[in-house]
């Protein structure tokens, strides 16, 4: 499904990713590593928000390197950011509706992610944890084939971590995912495959 071949990324002289190569057939791939190891950059390169310095990315046999993010989304790759990027002045419902395009599906996802009580509040008026859930809801409302989730458990309380875990497990059967985290404990419970990244290089897999 996804193939990343020899991808490197440099910011000035600073090498963030170095010859990263891996592939994903289906299921959930967990990527772990310390802060600044290059996880977020890798996801951004796959989703088109960053251009790689060299290397190529293929999705379902089509090259998506250097394609605009909105085109990559249309091919079925959706991204949820670590620091949520949502439409702050729109309601939660409107936010998800924009991604889902149909009201019924919006309601369904919001129900699953426990967003029903804040459905008609503006995104800027809800708590940080709920915003994180909203980000996930928007990502999955796109009905992607591959979801890239950057630190989905960060800044969530225990109760919401449960909600997310439940949701991911349920969707994991039909949607492939790449999930990053700097702690491996939760990741191991859902991931079928794990990669460790350190200093921009893949150092181990399990």
């Amino acid at each position: 499904m996804l193939e990343v071949i020899e991808v490197s990324k440099m910011f000035g002289r600073n090498v963030v990713l170095k010859n990263v190569t891996f592939s994903l057939k289906n299921g959930i791939l967990g990527i772990y590593g310390a802060n600044g190891s290059g996880k977020t950059t890798l996801l951004k390169i796959i989703s088109g928000f960053e251009k790689p310095s060299c290397g190529r990315v293929f999705f379902n046999g089509r090259e998506i390197t250097n394609k605009a993010p909105q085109e990559i989304v249309k091919l079925g790759v959706a991204m949820a950011f670590q620091i949520p990027r949502v439409f702050w002045n729109l309601t939660v419902h409107e936010n998800v509706l924009l991604a889902a395009r149909e009201t019924d599906y919006t309601a369904e996802i919001c129900k699953e992610l426990n967003l029903e009580d804040v459905l008609f509040k503006k995104a800027k008026e809800i708590s940080q944890g709920k915003v994180k859930l909203l980000q996930l809801a928007m990502c999955f409302a796109l009905k992607p084939k591959l979801a890239l989730l950057d630190e989905p458990f960060a800044s969530l309380d225990a109760e919401n971590v449960e909600v997310v875990l439940e949701f991911l497990k349920k969707r994991g059967s039909e949607i492939s995912m790449i999930i990053t985290a700097h702690r491996t404990k939760i990741l191991k419970t859902i991931a079928s495959q794990m990669l460790e990244i350190r200093g921009g290089k893949i150092v181990g897999s399990s």
Binding site: V73, F81, R85, F87, W88, L90
Partner: peptide, 9 residues
């Protein structure tokens, strides 16, 4: 509201 978020969807 957010051009990047818009691109993401």
């Amino acid at each position: 509201d957010d051009e990047i978020a818009a691109k993401a969807i």
